[in-house]
Amino acid sequence: MKIHLTSVFVDDQAKALQFYTEVLGFVKKHDVPVGEKDRWLTVVSPDEPGGIELLLEPAGHPAVKSYRDALTEDGIPLAQFAVDDVRGEYERMRDLGVRFTQEPLDMGPVTTAVFDDTCGNLIQIATLPQ
């Protein structure tokens, strides 16, 4: 068994696609209409086009808001992405207006930061030991 897909709920799929591609640098993999207005919308890392897909899932279910509000209030990220240089990414994204709730923090071998993806989630970026 292996993980091939994971997901984050997003308030607005079109806005999410824009943020996840133009700001974060992922590329669109699948975009299939589902129902009246929802899409099966996934992105992948340009480094691994055949790798794990991230589903930008509609946040329409009534439970999503309370779930995300509670976690966001406490600053808890809902996904973690790996980057080569957290500090470099932090500066690049901050200059693009991205809001960070945790600035780059060295925690032993791992450096992390947490930002708001503008679609309702906090996301952690991490530079892991090579």
């Binding site: 406490d74 600053g75 808890i76 990220p77 709730t101 945790q102 923090l105 925690m107 032993g108 791992v110 992390t112 947490v114």
Partner: peptide, 12 residues
Amino acid sequence: QTLFEICARLSM
């Protein structure tokens, strides 16, 4: 700091 960051600092 958020609660998450405080927890992360204490554990890590």
